[in-house]
Amino acid sequence: MDVQDRARGCLLGGAIGDALGAPIEFQSLREIRRDHGTDGISGYIATWRGEIGLITDDTQMTLFTVEGLLRADHASGSPAAGLGGAPVAESVREAYLRWLDTQDHHAPPPADRPHRTGRLREEGWLYSRRAPGNACLSGLRRPFPGPSPLGEPGPVNPNSKGCGTVMRSAPFGLVTRDAREAFETAAVCAQITHGHPTGYLAAGAFAAIVAHLMAGEALEQAVHRTMDLLAGYPEHEETTAALHAAVELAAAGGQHTPEKAESLGGAWVAEEALAIGVYCALAEPSVERALLLSVNHSGDSDSTGSVCGNLLGARHGAAALPAVWLRPLEGRETIERLAAELA
């Protein structure tokens, strides 16, 4: 399997999981079962707009992460260096400011600011609010003086560890086979909006797992190697504990249920979203069943679906994704174009 197929699978898989979970994001498991039966949803269901396959801010921000990385010289080997001397974090933050425009406007605003350039901002389908995270919005409205040393509170929203860091960070693992580089770059860029160490270290861990998968490693090995990497950073304990719990739960055997997924948390914070996504991807050998398990629970269903889908796509490639979910997926052409450019 080549790198491009894994990259394409990662971005498409994340978008599928996002679209599956979006309509039930704010429902409890009891409500999901009441409305859709004991097994919960079994595929896309219509949103309030009456459409299926619609993505949320998770995929929107992931695509702008890709655009930011495409503009940066990631081959420098340093998360602080970038194309023409511009930091990677600066390039990614400018991309997130373009995403913020899609939340504040109904169409591309005039190109009257330095960040308002590029092809992605011209795509009208992105100009739609899909329940964006408060920390992502507020963080981008504040100056970013630069990252703090890893393990210390970041300068923006220092008490926030929402899952908005994790759900957008898979692309950092697609641009390098060096897991430490992926980890540190993702963690630095997560500080643009979320300053709690767990919030940005969980994003780094997610990127590192993806980097290992892109190198052809099995998921369980990728998670264990990432926990080894995590142990070298201050304040890693919450993220390490969440990943350890996910691995242990998947290995315990028996039937894998929404109740087991919920035992890992509600996924509104970064380490819990990462843990649930990892658990579901490890527990179910079927891509389809893993994705459904990752969204049929009380909690942030679109984010856990997105994380699980990113992992499964990077591990198995785009061909493993159910065609019935690929066909109606919103933005598929753009996602595939960006995946090809990134790979």
Rank of each mutant, 00 (worst) to 15 (best):
L282T: 04
L243V: 05
S28Y: 11
A187Y: 12
I16E: 01
G305H: 09
A75M: 13
A323P: 15
Q221W: 12
A95D: 12
G253P: 07
H115Y: 15
G124S: 14
Y96V: 06
L229N: 07
G204D: 08
R113I: 01
G232M: 07
C189S: 07
T257L: 11
H74T: 15
T176C: 02
S169T: 11
G118E: 03
L70T: 13
P171K: 04
A245D: 09
G299W: 05
E271Y: 12
A111E: 02
L174F: 04
L321W: 09
A205L: 07
A320C: 00
L213W: 02
E123Y: 13
S303C: 06
E271D: 06
R180N: 01
E237L: 12
R121E: 05
F172W: 02
P322F: 11
H244F: 13
S298Q: 03
W99G: 03
L292Y: 05
E90K: 14
P322V: 10
W99D: 04
A343H: 00
P171R: 11
E259N: 03
G204P: 02
N310K: 00
E94A: 15
A215C: 10
Q191P: 09
F172L: 03
R121T: 08
V247P: 10
T198D: 15
N157M: 11
K260G: 03
L120G: 06
E123G: 11
N157W: 03
A80L: 15
E288F: 09
S91Y: 14
T102A: 06
S160W: 12
L11A: 08
A290L: 05
A203N: 10
L342P: 08
A75V: 12
V188G: 07
L69R: 05
R34M: 13
M214L: 13
L338S: 06
R93I: 08
A273Y: 09
A273E: 04
G232S: 00
